[in-house]
Amino acid sequence: MTHSSSPRTPNFGAIPGLAERATPEFSLALFRRMALTRAFETRARQAQADQDVRTLIYLCLGEEAISAGISMHAEGAWVLGQHRGHGTYLSFGGNMERLIDELLGMPSGCSSGMGGSPPIHDMEKGIVGHSGLIGDQVPVAVGMAMAGEARKVVTFFGDGAAEEDYVLASLGTAASRKLPILFVCEDNDLSVLTPTRDRRGWDLAQVARGFGLEAVDIADDPWLVAHWAETLMVRLPALINVRTCRDVWHVGIGSDGAPEWNRFDLVREKLAALGLGEQAARIEAEARDLVEAKWQERLRIRSAS
């Protein structure tokens, strides 16, 4: 893979040879997280189509690589996801049953059916809930980083949320106080349906650098995301802006056609080129089976109650 200078391309910021240098165990573990999110979101989409899920859901199909990559090097951190956070929750080890139960509106859900996607959380794993106001989690994450614990903080937010006053103020405060926090912008170039160019003319990574944060701007190649997570988690505070593609609608399950690039397919191809194609296919099948079994179980429990 060669470096591309155009931000909305799958090779933006590429570092040649990263995937090749990774161990097969690492590459497959990374892919396992992506595959789990992919399988989950695909099944959740079906569940809404079947009207088993009757609340608003924000799917991260197409964006799976970001949380998968970051989570490979953020063990033990506090994690604050955004409203589109199923992938963050699952990649950081959140309990799948409680997520399904939440989407099904069951009392055993993460938030007992109060909020559907946004407030999912798993405090045992350090995954903190989201209020539903975009970017709200970012100053909260900075506050957690201010507490003086040894524990690091990772917070995710969208390119739209990046514009919120309080998100920018959070970047400045983290930089001023040298707080142990990693900011990750999941940049799908859309706020609902409004593209970034219609909303602002500045660039988040540059702004972060202006505040004094170390910052990189890259595409969502999972090896690249993991590489920067590993590099920056020991040089906090820092920001990673990750260019990615949302496959489905802002909310719900519809689609407006093919994404600008299909990261999941690109990763499959790369794994095949590394000679890991068969193992990858098995991982995908296992993820699908696991997710299907869990959904069936939770649906049975719901209909029995």
Partner: peptide, 9 residues
């Protein structure tokens, strides 16, 4: 009380 997303809440 805070409203929930599911109809019963």
């Amino acid at each position: 009380r805070s409203p929930g997303a599911y109809p019963h809440l």
